[in-house]
């Protein structure tokens, strides 16, 4: 993908965000994203309000049309596609983990986890570590297909390190680049690049 397309793709993955946030998703310098976003606004593909960019419906439609050609290489890349299948398997596991992080079972009934039980929380963080370590080869395989995917490994590692250190909102917090937030963005990125749809469970 050329930079212009890549920036629109980053905006689609992030859904809405500053030039800095979009640049962070695709791993380019924020300064490089600004002119591309301005050009996209000029072409009617994006709009900007108070420094936050969003795709317009025509921009989204245009972007969707570009994927089959722009991502033909990755879609035909056996290692990348195989890694995606492995990702889906881990995805099911990790979504279940996030649910157990937020909700505990009290004699069969689900109640919110009040995070009072360190043993319970560390056991789940441990599981997250296990999933994280097993995901590393998968993330590496994505980066072999397209080097920009290495940014996800860095962002996931950073969220994991903070969660491991006991900063609990970095497991699934909605307002930070938590493990869940980054994982979900990676998933969204993969679905777009490969032209797949989400398997909702």
């Amino acid at each position: 993908m050329d930079v212009g397309l890549l920036v629109l793709h980053g905006l689609a993955v992030r859904k809405a965000g500053s030039a800095e946030a979009v640049a962070g998703v695709i791993g380019i310098a924020p300064g490089a994203a600004v002119p591309e976003l301005a050009a996209a606004c000029g072409a009617g593909h994006a709009i900007e309000a108070n420094g936050t960019y969003m795709l317009t419906p025509p921009g989204r439609a245009w972007l969707d049309e570009q994927y089959p050609t722009a991502c033909a290489g990755l879609r035909a890349h056996a290692g990348f596609v195989q890694a995606y299948e492995a990702f889906e398997v881990v995805n099911t596991e990790i979504l279940d983990l996030f649910t157990r992080w937020q909700t505990i079972s009290v004699g069969g009934a689900a109640v919110p986890n009040d995070h009072a039980d360190e043993d319970y929380d560390y056991a789940i963080i441990d599981e997250l570590g296990d999933v994280h370590e097993r995901s590393l080869p998968v993330l590496d395989a994505f980066a072999v297909g397209d080097p920009r995917f290495s940014i996800y490994a860095d962002r996931l590692a950073s969220a994991y390190d903070r969660a491991l250190a006991g900063e609990k909102e970095w497991v699934s917090g909605a307002l930070v680049d938590s493990y869940h937030t980054v994982w979900f963005e990676l998933h969204e990125d993969l679905l777009r690049v490969l032209g797949r749809t989400r398997r909702e469970s």
């Binding site: 979504l95 649910t99 937020q102 909700t103 699934s172 909605a174 909702e200 469970s201």
Partner: peptide, 9 residues
């Protein structure tokens, strides 16, 4: 989507 979906989490 179920209890592990983005909306739920």
């Amino acid at each position: 989507g179920g209890r592990t979906s983005h909306a739920a989490v």
